[in-house]
Computed example of a mutant assay.
Amino acid sequence: MNKISVFGERISTEEELRSLIGYPGDLVNRKVIFHLDVHCRNFIAQSPFLLLATADHSGLCDVSPRGDVPGFVFVLDEKHLVIPERPGNRRVDSMRNILSNPQVGLLFLIPGLGETLRINGKACLVKDEKLLKQMEVNGRSPLVGIGVEVEECFVHCAKAILRSKLWEPETWPDKKRLPSAAKMLADHAKMPGTTVDEIAEILRESYSNRL
């Protein structure tokens, strides 16, 4: 009998899971490759955005966005790529995780395209100046890069993108109804004497001058 919690009945074995979901077809089983072929390289070259999944030594997970001009991820060869670390909030969650657990997952997106590219592998933190110089933008080289040794990669189908209508502007909500990042930060951080307007200005300055 499954344990009952706030989630109700839970699945506890793969056998039980498979009895509900079933098994993938031959195409899905065979689509995984173990290097960056010409198709993967082309996808990465046209992608301006990816999600980076990491976990620390205890298994605590984190997913962090990375973005820049299309092709910002530098492919060294069929087994290795480097993600430049652009200016951020200095939490360095992903990089701290990599220091204790090198396993990472990458999800590359291309605006307007339903399919995504998934890459799993082992990561390290790179500070080689000659290598980082090749990822220079606006006269500035990244201080650090995330090097990834590719272990597997494959195309992920478009169903989630299609269901969400992610790339269809007519389905997007009115910006006036969107959550205010400044208000959320003010309520979460609870900084005495700091107003929502002041936090909004901090964000505007950061987005304008420190990309």
Rank of each mutant, 00 (worst) to 15 (best):
A158Q: 08
L52H: 02
K176G: 12
P70H: 06
I83K: 04
C61D: 04
G88D: 03
Q46P: 00
E170P: 05
N29V: 14
R118E: 04
I98T: 02
C124V: 08
L52T: 09
I119R: 03
I21D: 06
I146R: 01
F7C: 13
T54R: 09
W167F: 04
V6S: 12
K79S: 14
A160W: 00
N29H: 12
V92K: 10
A160M: 00
R163S: 12
K190V: 12
E16H: 09
E78C: 11
S12F: 14
L125Y: 04
E129I: 06
G59M: 05
R30K: 15
G22Q: 06
V32W: 11
R18A: 12
G147P: 04
R41A: 05
L166A: 08
S208P: 00
L166T: 14
G139Q: 02
C124Q: 09
I44R: 01
V155H: 01
L20N: 10
P48Q: 07
P48D: 05
R96E: 13
H188L: 15
R41L: 01
A189L: 15
R41T: 03
C61E: 10
I110W: 07
S164C: 12
V144T: 09
D174V: 01
V28D: 03
W167S: 09
G71A: 02
H57P: 01
R177Q: 11
T54N: 06
